[in-house]
């Protein structure tokens, strides 16, 4: 049979071994677009939908370990939105209810698009992606896994099994710019994590480079600009503008049918700046009720 539907991870490894060149499908929301438009002609397909090890999530010490098969709808549920607020926000902005029910975290990593909405969050949280193969495992960062636009370093026979993230780390925000609130590929997106205990700031940008970019200079600047006891920026508006400028400098976007490089730089700067403002306002406890679909 050129289509196998295993129910266990070992079953997946066996299936991949028995069907050389087989491709994996999870939610199908990237895969089937390519098949329907004859841009992808798989020799054989292994479906991951029924694989029990890829479903669900667990806590392990201070970490949350997410199965690669978790859907966006599952990432938005209350428990995970408390443990991983940035990821949950990102999931909320993906596609439509139909796409969020089907599309998975593992598929977002597998596709490795620079616009993948979960990827900046995973990058900012220094996620560990656990890759399994028959008889072995390895752990990669997002930057190690995704080596170019839509290119990952996964070898034949390897499966993304789970993603390990710190639980409830600091304050987190995800913002995305597109032409509409639903069903939109990001023109630019950004994830921000402010770790109040470790006194660090992490800022990752999507859709503004061949891969997800960390705005390191902006991160370092923000960490020195924040008064960690008062939980505000010492230089106020001036610091916000400097942070935004450093984010714009970190962006390396291209012009394409969705946007110009210039606008993408601008949008990345605005997203990151607004994320920092929100995080600080939340700490000050005066954050106004948000419009639910605003991101």
């Amino acid at each position: 049979m050129p289509v196998l539907v295993p129910t266990s991870l070992d079953g997946v490894f066996d299936a991949l071994a028995s069907l050389p060149g087989a491709e994996m499908i999870a939610g199908g929301t990237d895969f089937m677009v390519e098949v329907n438009y004859a841009r992808r002609r798989p020799r054989a397909i292994v479906s991951l939908r029924g694989v029990r090890e890829l479903k669900g999530w667990r806590r392990e010490g201070g970490d949350v370990v997410l199965g690669a098969g978790l859907s966006y709808a599952e990432l938005m549920r209350p428990e995970l939105s408390v443990l991983l607020p940035g990821l949950s926000q990102a999931a909320r902005t993906v596609g439509s209810p139909q796409i969020r029910n089907a599309g998975t975290l593992g598929g977002n990593l597998g596709t490795a698009s620079p616009a993948g909405d979960t990827l900046p969050v995973l990058s900012a949280l220094d996620a560990k992606v656990v890759i399994g193969r028959s008889g072995g495992r390895r752990e990669l960062s997002v930057a190690q896994l995704i080596v170019g636009p839509k290119r990952s370093c996964l070898q034949e026979g390897e499966v993304i099994v789970e993603i390990r993230l710190p639980a409830g780390l600091g304050s987190q925000e995800f913002l995305k710019v597109g032409t509409r609130n639903a069903m939109v590929i990001a023109v630019a997106n950004a994830a921000l994590v402010v770790d109040w205990v470790g006194r660090s700031v992490r800022c990752a940008l999507g859709s503004v480079g061949p891969v997800i970019l960390r705005a390191s200079a902006a991160e370092e600047f923000a960490a020195t600009a924040i008064d960690w006891d008062e939980r505000r920026l010492r230089g106020g508006e001036r610091d916000l503008e400097q942070f935004s400028a450093l984010v714009r400098e970190a962006a390396r976007p291209i012009d394409d049918h969705r946007s110009t490089a210039r606008y993408r730089c601008h949008a990345a700067g605005v997203c990151a700046r607004r994320a920092l403002e929100r995080v600080l306002a939340k700490r000050a406890g005066d954050r106004a009720e948000e419009v639910p679909w605003e991101s």
Binding site: V3, V5, I25, M32, I45
Partner: peptide, 10 residues
Amino acid sequence: ECACMVLAAG
């Protein structure tokens, strides 16, 4: 879900 995104044999 959208039926066009589902592999029937899966």
